[in-house]
Design a binder for these strands. Structure first.
Length: 263
DNA sequence: CTGGGGAAGGGGCCC
DNA sequence: GGGGCCCCTTCCCCA
């Protein structure tokens, strides 16, 4: 099994620097934004495909496509690929091809909000844009200072995180919606360049070469870590025993197991 | 057990 | 404001 299918597990060791953002929670008023980016609302199979890469922008995310006899499983996580991996090799539209056809094709594209039936997914998407604008479901919290709204805290509706710019929030939301989907294996990513890096695991492309040895890497950061192995003095040093390591993770492991601080 | 490689996530910066 | 890229970091696996 390729390691690329490993699911990241969040641990307490990961320390994103949200401290300054998390302190902006008082004096809040609310602004409404359209709820347009919930992955559970749009199965991948209903999204137009590209030969090599699937990409949705936030503004272009398809809206709720609700078949009359939906076979869309509820999403247990950001993306349940378990059911897709078996049929992902070019098999599109499990909703459209694996289900028995509806008596009236128009019923297959019913708006979940108002029940209106449309002739096609595209017309349904266009119709649902009206809900996207008119139906405030996601709430962005804007934090006021005492005198003016000089700072805004944009809350993610999927998790407790908040950001002080809409752009940062949109970037973060991509980690929930995972709009970049590998058409080879179905794995989804938050950003296009992550997908490109992942595609290299399929193609075997390794554009980053070590100048000291002939080893090549698909990822620049991995090359950088590798270069540390050629260095006599490693970048990360133990404060207790002065031993150096090529990686921060190795230093962490060292301090946790081998070298207990003098305590 | 340790070091290193592979894969991936996310913030920040620049254009 | 959005996309691309850089950089750092983490996690997992393996020799």
């Amino acid at each position: 099994m390729p390691r690329s299918f490993l699911v990241k597990k969040y641990s307490s060791n990961k320390k994103p620097n949200y401290s300054e953002l998390e302190s902006q929670t008082d004096n809040t008023c609310y602004a409404v934004v359209p709820q347009c980016f919930s992955l559970e609302d749009f199965p991948i199979s209903l999204v137009p495909t590209h030969p090599s890469i699937l990409m949705w922008t936030t503004s272009a995310l398809p809206l709720t496509l609700t078949p009359a006899s939906p076979s869309i499983p509820s999403q247990p996580g950001p993306l349940d690929l378990s059911s897709q991996s078996s049929s992902s090799s070019g098999e599109e539209d499990d909703c459209g091809t694996s289900d028995p056809p509806s008596p009236d094709p128009r019923d297959r594209f019913q708006c979940a909000h108002c029940g209106k039936t449309c002739n096609s997914p595209i017309s349904l998407s266009h119709h649902q844009l009206t809900h996207c604008i008119a139906r405030p479901e996601a709430v962005i919290t804007i934090t006021e200072t005492s005198n003016a709204m000089t700072r805004a805290a944009f809350h993610c509706k999927h998790c407790p995180k908040e950001y002080n710019s809409l752009g940062a929030l949109k970037m973060h939301i991509r980690s929930h919606t995972l709009p970049c989907v590998c058409t080879t294996c179905g794995k989804a990513f938050s950003r296009p360049w992550l997908l490109r890096g992942h595609i290299r695991t399929h193609t075997g492309e390794r554009p980053f070469s070590c100048p000291h040895c002939n080893r090549a890497f698909a990822d620049r950061s991995n090359l950088r870590a590798h270069l540390q192995t050629h260095s006599e003095v490693k970048k990360y040093q133990c404060g207790t025993c002065s031993r150096t390591f090529s990686r921060m993770s190795l230093l962490h492991k060292h301090t946790l197991s081998a070298c207990f601080p003098s305590a």
